[in-house]
């Protein structure tokens, strides 16, 4: 069974058709890449999958369960985790607090008990902190644990965001441009990180990115979107040299491959 199935999803805002009959599939332990020019509808598709938008037509299924109309927080509980294009973190909080907040669904006491301050909540809070530190260590972010998010540079934030999503204990990771703002070498490192995370956490990953070499290297399957439609799909190399993909990226076909 596929982990994620998107069937014929369309959405329009007023008269603008943002997505038209998009279908997409991600299997267990797969990494699926989504590429396409700006405004192709990639983030809109993510918003439909994670519940920020409700599609005008079509279905979204997670492990066979129809989640098309489920609220965002319920999807997180099922195991969907996502990152945002412009870093989705609580900016006024510290990195550690973000990771604690992200463990919201793993908290082992009721909110009221927490407010009353029963002794058990103190122990549970310590457990949450320990787990947050473990995740930070894993991503080599321990050195920023006590920093406020706003004080950190963009490149670090992208990794902090990844750590926060991992803290939600996801099964399916949806990454919106994890490689933006990274140089070629850092993108290389990110690719390694993703492959390792998949292995260690048993994750399925769907990622949007402009770094075509990164997407090609780590993905098992790639979709290329343009004007709200799937332009091409298939193995990374096939999509990369697909003539229409080249055209969409360059505007004309003077080169045979999608540039870096």
């Amino acid at each position: 069974m596929s982990v994620l199935e998107v069937d014929d999803v369309s959405i329009h805002f007023g008269g603008i058709k943002a997505l038209q009959n998009i279908s997409l599939r991600a299997g267990e332990w797969e990494i699926v890449g989504i590429i396409g020019p700006n405004g192709a509808g990639k983030t809109t598709l993510f918003n439909c999958i994670t519940g920020f938008y409700t599609p005008s037509a079509g279905r979204v299924r997670y492990r066979g369960k129809d989640i098309t109309r489920l609220p965002v927080h319920r999807r997180t509980a099922l195991g969907l985790g996502r990152t945002f294009q412009n870093v989705g973190l609580v900016k006024n909080a510290t990195v550690l607090d973000n990771l604690l907040t992200a463990q919201h669904l793993q908290v082992g006491y009721e909110p009221v008990t927490g407010i009353l301050g029963s002794p058990a909540t103190f122990a549970e809070e310590k457990r949450l902190r320990d787990r947050a530190h473990q995740i930070l260590e894993l991503l080599q972010l321990e050195y920023v644990a006590r920093e406020r998010v706003t004080d950190l540079p963009y490149g670090v934030l992208k990794r902090v965001e990844l750590a926060a999503v991992l803290a939600t204990d996801p099964d399916l990771l949806l990454l919106d441009e994890p490689g933006s703002g990274l140089g070629p070498e850092e993108a290389e490192g990110l690719g390694d990180t993703l492959l390792t995370l998949r292995k260690e956490f048993g994750l399925t990953i769907v990622m949007i990115d402009h770094h075509v070499p990164l997407v090609t290297r780590v993905s098992d399957y790639v979709y290329c979107l343009n004007f709200g439609e799937v332009l091409a799909e298939g193995r990374p190399d096939a999509v990369r040299s697909h003539p229409e993909v080249v055209l969409a990226y360059l505007g004309d076909d003077t080169e045979s491959e999608v540039p870096v």
Binding site: F52, G88, T101, P111, T168
Partner: peptide, 18 residues
């Protein structure tokens, strides 16, 4: 923590499962 998150950014808060 949930309140701090949703005050600043309800989208992030809900994607944390709040």
């Amino acid at each position: 923590r949930a309140l701090a998150a949703l005050r600043e950014n309800p989208r992030v808060a809900s994607s944390y499962g709040i």
